[in-house]
Design a protein around this nucleic acid. Sequence first.
RNA 1: GCACCGUUCGUCUAGGGGUUAGGACACCAGAUUUUCAUUCUGGUAACAGGGGUUCGAUUCCCCUACGGUGUACCA
Length: 509
Amino acid sequence: MENRRVRVRFAPSPTGPLHLGGVRTALYNYLFAKKLGGDFILRIEDTDQNRFVPGAEEYIRESLKWAGIMYSEGPDIGGPYAPYRQSERKEMYAQYAQQLLDSGHAYYAFDTTEDLEAMRERMSKSGTQAFKYDAITRDYMKNSLTLPQDEVKQRLDAGEAHVIRFRMPRNEDVRVQDIIRGWVTVNSKELDDKVLFKSDGMPTYHLANVVDDYLMQITHVIRGEEWLPSAPLHVLLYRALGWESVMPQFAHLPLILKPDGNGKLSKRDGDRLGFPVFTLDWYDPFSGEKSSGYREAGYLPEAYVNILSMLGWHSGGDKEFYTMDELVEEFSLERVHKAGAKFDPEKAKWFNHQHIRTAPPEVLANVLSQQLSQHGITASPEYAAQVAELVREKATFLTDFYSLSVYFFSRPQSFDEKVIEKKWDATAPQFFSALKDAYASLEDFSAASVQTTFEETAQNLSLKPGNYFQLFRVIISGESGGPVLWDIVSLLGKTEISERIGDFLRARA
RNA sequence: GCACCGUUCGUCUAGGGGUUAGGACACCAGAUUUUCAUUCUGGUAACAGGGGUUCGAUUCCCCUACGGUGUACCA
C-alpha cells in the first residue's frame, strides 16, 4: 500500500458547464499527480440520468484541455481501467451492492418517494427533528429488516420498485483522516442509511465512487469540501467492502466563495458582478441561455491556471506569478488552506495582464492576426507581431488587442476631439506641414530619429515641441493614449505617416 | 434545528509563544512615459470577542460570536 503508484482522479458529473471551483479541483489533482510522478485520470460520474445535460461532458473535456490540465486516462482516450463513464460501468456495481447485502451491511427498502415525503412532513410538523432514515427509524419503515423474509422475496420477485440502503451503525465514532484537516470524527448516529442503489438500477454517488476508486486503484481522493460530511460514510463503505487497507487518502479542498457577501460562488455572481465563472462559453441546451467563459473573455490559459492555483494554496514565499511547470514543482497538499477563499475578479485581471506581459511573442501575434482576420483585415505576420509587441503592455485581456491596435491597420476615422479642441491652434497647420516635409526626406525612420526630427522641426520654427506631441498622436492614431509615440510612428512608416498627416491637414483646411 | 469544517489588512495570503505582524490585488500619493489602461517608488490598512495556560499570547486550550458545508432514490 505504501508503495503504490500515485493515482488521482477528477470526477465531475456532466450536469452543466465547469466552473472555477471544479477546474481548481481538477488542477490540484493534476498538480499533485505530476509532482509525485503519478497518474491523473478523468472519470465521468453520470449516474443520475435525470440531470444529464447534452454537451456537458464534451465541455468538461475541452475545458481541461484548454487549461492544460491533461489526463492520461479518460472517457475519450480510454485506459487500463476503462470505461471511464459510470453509466457504462453500470453492471459492475450490482455485485458490490449484493456483497453488502450478503454481509448484512445493506438492506432492501420498499418505501416510495411519497412514503418518505409524508414521513418528512409528519416529522417536521410535530417534532423538532428532521426525518432521517437511520438506525432508529428504519424499524418503522418498509424494508427487508422489518418485513418477513418471504414477503421481501415476494416483492422482489414481483419486480417491485426498491432501493438498497446502507445499514449505518447505531452509535459508533467514525474517524476520517484528512490530509488538509487532520482527523475528523463523526458519530454514526448523525448519519443516515444512505441509498446505495437506486430503484432505476443505478448506483448513487456514494457506492459508485467508492467502487470505482477501488477498482481504478485511486490512492488519493482530492475533492471539494462539500464532500467532507459524507466522508465517514465512504470510510464505512470501504470497511464493509473489505477494502480498508487500500482505502485512498482524503483531502477536502476549501470552497471558492462569492467576491462579496456570503456563500459559494455561483453563476449568478458572475452575471451580477461582470466576470466569468465558467471556463468556456456555454450555451444551455434547454434554456438557450449563454454564460461566458474565461477563454472567450480573453484570458490566457496560463493566467487562468495561475489564478486558480492561488485560490486555496500558497507556496509560503512571496512568489505569486507561476507557470504550470513551476506549480507542479512547488505544489503540495499540506500547503492547501482550510478556509474558503473569496474570489477576487480584480486580482484575476491583474494575473492575466502579468501573463500577457510575459507571453511568448508568437502567441500574441497569433491572437492579433486572428482578430484581424475576423474583421476582414489581412496583415503580414511580421507586422502583426510587431504591433502585438507594442500593445501587449496595455492589454488586460487578449480581446483588447484588436481595439488597441486598429489604427495600425487602417486609418483613423475619428479623432479625439477633446485633444484637438485643446491643442489645435493657428501654428498647428504650419508645424505639421513642415513635419510632413521633414519626414519625407528622412532616411532613418527609427523611433529615435523620428523623435529628433520632430523636435528639430519645432525648434526651426521657434515652436515648442511639447505643444504638438499629443496632437500628433491623435492625427496618426485618432487616440489620445497608446504605446510610446515614436514607436508607433516608426512602425507605421514614412509613407503612411506622411499620408496621414496630409489627410488630416486637408480635412482641417 | 442538528452535525462537521473554518475565522490574520476591504480581498488573496505569509508567519507563528517574545516580529516595527511580511507580500500581493485594490485604494491613495509621488515619479517617469510631455498620452495612459502600463511601469517604478512610497503610503493607509489586519491577528473576531471573552476566558484560561504562560514571565510573555496573534500563535496553545476552552467558550461565545460569526461564516461555510452537509442533512435527497443530486453529485
